[in-house]
């Protein structure tokens, strides 16, 4: 078995006195799509945000391609190999979609403007909004904005994509188009960590499920195994509740 892309060891994170992550150790292999789920407040977003050190964890460490994040001398350069998609899109409102996408490739990766724009247009083509390239974020629908945000993350040519509840701020008809873009990405072999409540997506697309509660990983299983045979009581309850809702 090859070395893991992301290796998390004894990771703990506190917000003030609240312990959000409690001594987590796990790893993620390249080429896999892993869904992280669990009740709200279980620490799943925090875990995701530790993978590119958006959270300054206090204990333990995260290794990306063997590089320790705690001791990383240039965190910006490391982050430019990891794409991230946010719940509220976080496109830059004062820039066109094209400028949003080309900003980091040009300034963090030193690409030329022409190269960056050419690449951006192929990415927009891929998420099916190439006609929106010269508009500003606020002129797009929520689903289009999130697809633009996915294109922006892909423009880094990342080795890993992080999705932090990418559909929870969207209307149902727009969720479908974003999930489709994510599914295509997974099918192309992108390594993905996805925090989501979309159990349909999880079952259909992901390779593995990580179930978290109270800052701990309660259960980690192959997707089919998790749905047909959840081991822990808490995971069973969680599935019952969330599948009932669907």
């Amino acid at each position: 078995m090859s070395d893991p892309l992301v290796d998390i060891r004894d990771l703990s994170l506190w917000y003030e006195k609240f312990k959000a992550l409690d001594n987590i150790s796990t790893s993620f292999t390249a080429g896999k799509c892993v869904v992280i789920c669990g009740p709200s407040g279980s620490g799943k977003s925090s875990l995701l945000r530790c993978v590119n050190r958006l959270e300054d964890f206090q204990e333990g460490d995260v290794y990306f391609e063997g590089q320790s994040l705690r001791e990383c001398p240039n965190i910006a350069s490391l982050r430019s190999n990891i794409g991230m998609v946010f719940q509220h899109f976080e496109l830059y409102p004062h820039m066109t979609i094209l400028d949003n996408i080309t900003l980091a490739p040009r300034h963090a990766k030193g690409k030329s403007k022409a190269d960056a724009e050419a690449h951006a247009l192929t990415l927009l083509e891929r998420v099916d909004i190439v006609d929106q390239a010269h508009k500003h974020p606020a002129e797009l629908s929520g689903g289009q904005q999130q697809r633009a945000a996915i294109a922006r993350a892909l423009a880094l040519e990342p080795k890993l994509m992080l999705f932090d509840e990418p559909t929870s701020a969207l209307d149902p008809e727009m969720i479908v188009e974003v999930l489709r873009a994510m599914r295509d990405l997974a099918n192309d072999g992108m390594t993905m960590l996805v925090v989501t409540h979309e159990m349909g997506f999880a079952r259909e697309v992901s390779d593995e499920i990580v179930f978290m509660d109270e800052g701990k990983i309660v259960e980690r299983k192959e997707t089919n195994d998790f749905f047909s045979n959840p081991h822990s009581k808490r995971a069973q309850d969680f599935l019952d509740r969330i599948l009932m809702k669907i």
Partner: peptide, 24 residues
């Protein structure tokens, strides 16, 4: 979230202010 987005894409603190925060 704007800071998070800019950070996650590998921009340095100075670049984040220069291209994202201050223009807006």
């Amino acid at each position: 979230g704007q800071f998070d987005a800019a950070r996650s894409s590998g921009l340095t603190e100075v670049q984040i202010y220069r291209y994202v925060i201050i223009p807006y």
